[in-house]
């Protein structure tokens, strides 16, 4: 792949060097990577972990329980509709 490597190193080594040199020569890229990492950290380590639990995954341990809960949500009057009368 890489043509600029002087020696006849193996493919993997050449790929490694390609990335390594690419990253080393970055200028603006360094700032951008920093932003990416800070963002990912805030998103996953803070927001996801503390504020965005998967509601059904944390509240129940089996899929059957989750299914039952959702069906209940779909058929319980407190969920935003007046419970219809049978045969209405």
């Amino acid at each position: 792949m890489a043509t600029g490597t002087p020696d006849q190193a193996g493919l993997l080594t050449r790929i490694y060097r390609f990335y390594r040199d690419g990253f080393r020569q970055m200028t603006l890229g360094r700032t951008l990577w920093k932003i990416i990492f800070i963002k990912l950290f805030i998103m996953f380590a803070v927001l996801k972990f503390f504020f965005f639990p998967d509601f059904l995954a944390t509240k129940f341990s089996t899929d059957t329980q989750r299914a039952d809960y959702v069906i209940e949500q779909l058929t319980q009057p407190a969920q935003g509709y007046t419970k219809p009368v049978q045969g209405e």
Partner: peptide, 17 residues
């Protein structure tokens, strides 16, 4: 790209919560 990447994942967080 760098600034926008992964901002969509937040939508997935919201789905689950």
């Amino acid at each position: 790209f760098a600034i926008g990447v992964a901002t969509g994942i937040i939508l997935e967080f919201e789905f689950g919560t």
